[in-house]
Nucleic acid binder design. Structure first.
Lengths: 339, 339
DNA sequence: TAGGGTCGGTCAAACGATTGAACGAGCCTA
DNA sequence: TAGGCTCGTTCAATCGTTTGACCGACCCTA
């Protein structure tokens, strides 16, 4: 019972019109003038036969795939889950399908993807996470619009969308300042990540307002992982800093920071307050529940899609998404102990 | 500088051969007999021009998209992240691209996806997570091979791949038994989830070996969320069960279980041991670090892809992936307190 | 009644790759 | 030297849609 797939021609035959008519009806071509009853016949034929346009043929003809690509480092990282969610939603709203791939799996890599995507599989490409200059070079050569998401690209020709990380950091630090903290240290992210650099800048800026000096030993760097956070916190304690509060550059490191503080018999928030960027679902279930700054990561993903669809390969794109950020006040922050 | 895209014809012209030759070289057609120097010329032309086959044209001709679809409920759930990772890796290994979509977003739904996928966008479809009978009906009508992943489908015509959930449950409960526990209760998953039912069955089976009776009040049901787990645990305590150990059907609920135990001033593992299925990255960072049973979720995703690619729409597919499972012994389980 | 406008369609040429069939040039054999 | 075989390559139809160009019928107007 090998039912051949239904094509435009089948519909046209059933409706007694030319396939061109059917095509224009399907695509709501504004230049089409048609009698209501003819349109009715066509629509009926479509639904009777269960016609669905063949995407390959359409793509071939129009040179548009109706698909966008998003490459992330790792599906297991919840930060990317939010970006994906936002991007998918925006893509669907514009009638596009989103292909999300990870660049760190056993069989995957940027290169592998660029090969597989070939020509005409996607209309544009978004890269979240680290990318080498060589890869950016290769991207340019594809002739596709592309964009870095949550990372500034290097190079003179800019194509990126990022969030206002400095502002997020400020919100976090201001929260600590308002609670009365003055000895506030910072567990920063890796030097290579520009998000980490912007958050560190925001920390410094916020500390400047009440004119609290930030010494070198008030900042330690981790690699955005729990272990990295634990080590960075340990380093801060070892250096003799006796903070009443810690601003941590991401939640993964905050997990490690809490571990280290627990081992050092420092209670959170009684002895030390902890606040981190950004508000992952996980934050609520840590012990104590973590105070965070929620960043608009879904908006970031959505905005990337919109910009991508609106841009040509030659365009310059550089945007900072400034949707409101919010401090989520939970149990890990409190006023410093008196005295 | 609108450089026209490079096609087979361009390559053929440069190499001084017919485009048929180029096509066969690109696809490594075994029926092709060709002089080594000709092949060399072709390959050189390909690389000089940077030729990449047009996917749409190829799909149109071959009626194969080279793409598989995977629909999950939610990107933020780390369980699906593992399935995706496995599926992506297997798809790439077979030269296919994986399109992953979520069915619960603002603009997405099963239906929306089925429409968007149209005809010829994917060669097969995998559904992880709940699906209605109506949706299964619609899937059948697409004429595509499809498959439920980590869920048994209803209906007489089976298409599913699942894991051995009962075995996972047994491993967890046996671990508790070996530690010396006998008062072991179960926080089960929602009735609608067949994974939950299989895990409950495994719990009962394991308890039968040492002939420990399982009473109705030894099992409470949650909805696979932290809150659900917390409530189920509270219910168990209220019912007067004085367990020395809890087997929890998933990690999300275990988070809630730990909360409830903490609130009830029961120490873990001194007063109550807790073990859960499956080993998410998160488990290691809970307080105390959670003992779990690691299930081969990546294998599940990979196997689904392999089966999908090997099956026709009419085939029956029903497989239980039995890759070894492993108990991950952490801090939340210990022998029961003496006396 | 010739000329010009709508209306309501039809025609046919792309888009780029795949693939069965055909074909010419050598060479071998009888 | 004709016929057949192998080798290496070319020919051309085909996949299903899109879309600019064209066309016939009808009505209106001068």
């Amino acid at each position: 019972m090998k039912t051949r797939r239904v094509t435009l021609v089948d519909v046209a035959r059933l409706a007694g019109v030319d396939k061109a008519i059917v095509s224009r009806v399907v695509n709501a071509d504004p230049s089409l003038v048609i009698r209501p009853d003819t349109r009715e016949r066509v629509l009926e034929a479509i639904s009777n036969l269960g016609y669905r346009p063949n995407v390959a043929a359409r793509s071939l003809r129009t040179a548009k795939a109706g698909t966008l690509g998003l490459v992330i480092p790792d599906f297991a990282n919840p930060v990317y889950a939010e970006i994906i969610t936002g991007a998918e939603s925006a893509a669907l709203a514009k009638g596009h399908v989103l292909v999300t791939g990870s660049s760190t799996g056993a069989h995957s890599s940027m290169d592998r993807y660029l090969d597989l995507l070939g020509q005409g599989r996607v209309d544009g490409l978004m890269l979240a996470g680290p990318t080498t200059a060589a890869e950016q070079q290769k991207l340019e050569s594809l002739g596709l619009p592309w964009m870095m998401v949550n990372r500034r690209d290097t190079g003179e020709h800019h194509r990126y969308v990022i969030l206002d990380d400095a502002q997020a950091a400020k919100l976090a630090v201001e929260h600590l300042l308002e609670l009365g903290h003055r000895k506030i240290v910072h567990v920063a992210g890796p030097f290579g990540a520009d998000t980490a650099r912007r958050r560190a800048t925001g920390y410094r800026q916020a500390m400047r307002v009440p004119d609290i000096p930030v010494r070198a030993e008030d900042i330690a760097r981790g690699d955005y992982t729990p272990r990295g956070g634990a080590e960075a916190m340990a380093e801060l304690l070892r250096k003799g800093a006796e903070p009443t509060a810690v601003f941590v550059a991401n939640v993964a490191m905050a997990v490690g920071v809490l571990d280290t503080l627990r081992r050092a018999d420092l209670r959170v928030p009684e002895d030390v307050s902890v606040v981190a960027v950004h508000d992952l679902p996980l934050a609520e279930h840590l012990v104590p529940a973590l105070t965070t700054v929620r960043m608009p990561l879904q908006d970031l993903g959505a905005r990337a899609v919109d910009l991508l669809l609106a841009s040509s390969p030659e365009d310059e794109v550089a945007e900072v998404v400034r949707t409101a950020m919010e401090l989520v006040y939970r149990e890990s922050t409190a006023p410093p102990a008196a005295g």
